[in-house]
Write a protein that binds this DNA or RNA. Structure first.
Length: 476
RNA sequence: GCCCCCAUGGUCUAGUGGUUAGGACACAGCCCUUUCAAGGCUAUAACUCGAGUUCGAGUCUCGAUGGGGGCACCA
């Protein structure tokens, strides 16, 4: 039975790294028909952000990551919010005191020895409170000092564990510090809560960022002190920026929500993030969530960190957009259409742009010419590729305007047929005829849709108006 | 400072002792085409370095270098 969990702290938004951690834990559980659990790690009272839990629910839902147990989905092993589990941590911390695997520490925060500058010799850096006698402890309590509870790390030996990604890792116990388990405010630290909760919630596979790799031996010592079974570990490589720096919200790196805001499809972001540090073993790159569940395998997770490339995400997003059902695409595109274009046939516009955009936010710019003809230069009518010159363009527009004015049926097909016949009759290449029309209709070097598609979209009156403007530019 | 981890093109990666080192993004060119996009084809581009082991090393060992992570009453 697989039980995995995603345990974010409520910061208000979903980091890309967190999203991937959640995704992998979710995929592993789903792949094995196990249980995926959401747990809120709000043990830092100074960093709680209101509404942040709602943001987590929203982001997970948006990403398509559903959980079976969580704060709002009781699975019998709750509560699933750590701030609601305080008595549990207290009980287990005291159990450790009783067994000698933890001790009360009465030091002020500032009085702690500075590990970063002292050599790694246990006896020198161990907290003095570690050696307090029962009487001394009682005396300090009598003084009214509220202690913290620290883990008592053995001064000898080493701790070894096997990680599914990184393999076997051994650390000398002297390198481990007597970390705080229970803070003076009665809250546990992550270092303690994760062990207690993962055990109580019967987590079989702990999936988390690589930053916890070096703390894991301490957790194992805790599991051993309790006599609990140590879970399987899957530590994930970091996600960096392309310049090699750490991905950070503060440095302006987008969160999952930001990316959605930037016009990316949640499923494309999920797909992209899945590939950051994992690959299916074949050459597929485009995945739906179902396909990810089927293909996912923790043994194929990479060890080295990966850089987040907005460029590649953009490409992948384009792929997902093109695969969208046209009706679905239209619904999603709707809110990006500017006012000026709303009198036109939006379904038709959607069909034209679906294959041309990579992000939804490109839409306003792409359709702007439809309601506001750009002030373009006559030189645009020249194009060697279609054998268009100012002269050919002028001649064609002159002849094509009356032809189009006489059209009874105004559709893409009828227009195309008429112009094709025209081109053949006059010995023009089709492109030579289409270029000046398309140019006059769009006022741009490139446009979503060819000459007749634009004409169809704009309607007869607007088409003729624009063709005449184009002709006027050529007659100056 | 100490400990741990990592190392294939600019980026994401395949590779598990014998390969012309494969794919994708980006870039350039060509084809297709009613412009652009999409699609198709082609090109440029990589095993960090040094010792070993071996008939043979991107793949194994050691070292160096580089990068990252940890050493909080943060997670």
């Amino acid at each position: 039975m697989f039980r995995t969990r995603f345990a974010p702290s409520p910061t208000g938004y979903m980091h890309i790294g967190n999203l991937r951690t959640a995704l992998y834990a979710f995929l592993l559980a789903r792949k094995h028909h196990g249980t995926f659990i959401l747990r809120i790690e709000d043990t830092d009272q100074t960093r709680n952000v209101p509404e942040a839990v709602d943001a987590i629910y929203k982001s997970l839902a948006l990403a398509g990551i559903t959980y079976d147990e969580g704060p709002d989905k009781d699975g019998g092993r709750g509560p699933y919010v750590q701030s609601q589990r305080l008595p549990i941590y207290k009980k287990y911390a005291e159990q450790l005191i009783a067994s000698g695997d933890a001790y009360y520490c009465f030091c002020k925060k500032e009085a702690q020895p500075d590990n970063e500058e002292s050599p790694g010799i246990a006896e020198q850096k161990r907290d003095p409170c570690r050696y307090l006698t029962v009487e001394q402890v009682a005396a300090r309590f009598a003084e009214g000092i509220t202690p913290v509870i620290r883990q008592r790390i053995p001064n000898q030996g080493s701790t070894t564990f096997v990680d599914h990604v990184y393999g076997e890792i051994t650390v000398e116990n002297t390198q481990l510090d007597d970390q705080v388990l229970l803070k003076s405010d009665g809250f546990p630290t992550y270092n303690f809560a994760n062990v207690v909760d993962d055990h109580l919630m019967e987590i079989t596979h702990v999936i988390r960022g690589q930053e916890y790799l070096s703390s894991t031996p301490k957790y194992n010592l805790l599991y051993q002190a309790f006599g609990w079974q140590i879970p399987e570990y899957v530590h994930l490589p970091l996600i960096l920026r392309e310049d090699g720096a750490k991905l950070s919200k503060r440095a302006g790196d987008p969160s999952f929500e930001d990316l959605v805001q930037m016009g990316f499809l949640p499923e494309a972001i999920v797909n992209y993030v899945a590939l950051l540090g994992w690959n299916p073993g074949d050459e597929r790159e485009i995945f739906t969530m179902e396909e990810l569940i089927e293909a996912f395998d923790i043994e194929r997770i990479n060890k080295s960190s990966a850089a987040f490339s907005l460029e590649k995400l953009t490409w992948l997003n384009g792929e997902h957009i093109r695969r969208l059902d046209p009706q679905k695409f239209h619904e999603l595109a709707l809110k990006y259409y500017p006012e000026g274009v709303r009198h036109l046939n939006l379904e038709k516009i959607s069909r034209l742009i679906q294959i041309r955009i990579e992000r939804f936010t490109e839409i306003p710019t792409m359709v702007k010419f439809l309601y506001e003809l750009p002030d373009y230069d006559a030189a645009l009518f020249e194009n060697p590729k279609s054998k268009s010159t100012l002269q050919s363009s002028r001649e064609i527009l002159q002849e094509v305007i009356p032809l189009l004015e006489s059209m009874q049926e105004w559709t893409n097909e009828s227009l195309f047929t008429a112009l094709k016949v025209f081109a053949e009759a006059h010995g023009y290449k089709i492109g030579t005829v289409m270029w000046p029309i398309r140019t006059a209709l769009s006022g741009q070097f490139a446009s979503p849709g060819g000459a007749t598609e634009l004409a169809d979209l704009l309607g007869k009156d607007e088409t003729l108006r624009r063709l005449k403007i184009g002709l006027a530019k050529l007659q100056l």
